[in-house]
Structures are given as C-alpha cells and as structure tokens.
Amino acid sequence: MSKIILITGGQRSGKSRKAEELALSMSENPVYVATAHIWDEEFAERVRKHQERRGSQWTNIEEELQLSLHDLTGKVAVIDCITLWLTNFFYKNNSNTELSLKDAKAEFDAFTKHDATYIFVTNEIGSGGVSENAIQRKFTDLQGWMNQYIASKADEVILMVSGIAVTIKETGRQGVQD
C-alpha cells in the first residue's frame, strides 16, 4: 500500500534534511527525485551541497515535470520539491495558474498511483505576507492550492519550524478535497 508524507515549512526550516532522515529510516537505498531547473550559479551551488550531503546509498533522479515517467513501486522516495516543480509548470504554462494546477494535480495523481512511499517536500511561501507583484501572488495561490491538494491525499503532514518537526496530520486521508 502506498504512503504519502508531506513535509512543509519555510525556507531553511530543515525540510529537506528531515525528509532525507525519514527516508533513510525506512530504506537503506532510498530514491531522491530532484525537480529543480538550474537557473543560475548560486542555485547550482545549493544543488551541489544537497547532493554532497546525501551519500552513495541514494538513487538520484532529476525530473522537472513528468514525475509519472518514473515507476517507484516498492521504493521510498523523497521528492524535493513541490515549489520548484510547480515553478516549472507555471513557466511552461505562461503563468496560467488554473492550467498549472490542473497539470500538476494530474501528474501528482499519475505518479502516486504506484505502491511506494512518497515523501514530498514543499514550502509555505504564503506565510510571509502578500506580495506587491501580481505574478508572485498568482504563484503563491498556486502553491497554496497544490499544498492543500497534496495534504488532503497525505497520510502524514509534518511542519518544520526552525529545524523542529511538528506533526500536523497522522494517518487517514482527511482534509481538503478537489
């Protein structure tokens, strides 16, 4: 039976580290699915540090959009992260929030239909206030709606605050629906 875990929180709250620790506690050889598009040198350095932190026991997959191309049946996988994954849809769809949300939900459902343990990392970007930039507001809405969708499907939701894990939801699939 598949299991979905969502780890959310602010920037540098410890989300990725928590996801990796959790995956390693469940599997000796977890999978790391990186969704980032490398936009610049600073971001490439962040990615390099993440890769360095993980050991050779990890199988690494880089996939910017079509997670469902990868059948992870029987595996434990960290998908890092939903925010960067949604950025790729948002960019591809010319900032169309409705189309990006539709595409992301369909891809999420196709990807998680397999019997695996999925640990999704996401950001709470809407917690910092309302942006003056219309595009940023549209993306923040997209992120919030997708976080709600994944949380509604998740068996567990963990909020990271200053490196501390706070359990928001355990077992069951209650919450917001389509």
Rank of each mutant, 00 (worst) to 15 (best):
R12E: 13
F111R: 03
L22Q: 09
T167K: 13
G163W: 07
A116T: 04
S56Q: 12
N88Y: 04
G55W: 05
R46I: 05
M160R: 06
I164R: 12
A77V: 15
G126T: 03
L24N: 11
S162I: 04
L72Y: 03
N147L: 07
T112R: 01
M160G: 06
D80C: 05
D109C: 04
L22I: 13
A110H: 05
A106F: 00
K75Y: 01
M1C: 06
D141V: 08
M146Q: 09
A116C: 13
V130W: 04
F90L: 08
D71I: 05
E52L: 11
A104G: 07
V166I: 14
E21G: 07
S131R: 04
S56G: 11
D155N: 15
E21M: 10
E107M: 03
G9P: 10
H114G: 00
S162K: 06
G172L: 08
M160K: 04
T87A: 13
W85R: 06
V78L: 07
I82G: 01
L159A: 12
V161P: 06
Y149V: 02
A165T: 04
E20W: 04
G144W: 04
I4E: 08
G10V: 05
S56F: 01
G9V: 05
T112A: 04
A36C: 13
R12Q: 13
E42W: 01
N94T: 03
I150N: 01
Q174W: 02
Q174C: 00
K3E: 14
G74L: 02
S127Q: 13
V76H: 02
W85A: 05
G74S: 05
E28R: 12
D155A: 07
S68A: 15
I38W: 02
L69H: 13
D178S: 12
I38D: 03
D115T: 10
W58N: 07
C81S: 14
D71R: 08
K153V: 01
K113F: 00
L142M: 13
A44I: 01
S27N: 10
F120W: 13
Y91R: 08
L22K: 12
Q143M: 14
K49T: 07
T59E: 14
I168H: 01
S16K: 08
L84D: 10
I164D: 02
F90Y: 15
A110P: 00
T171L: 07
F120A: 06
I82R: 02
K153P: 00
P30L: 05
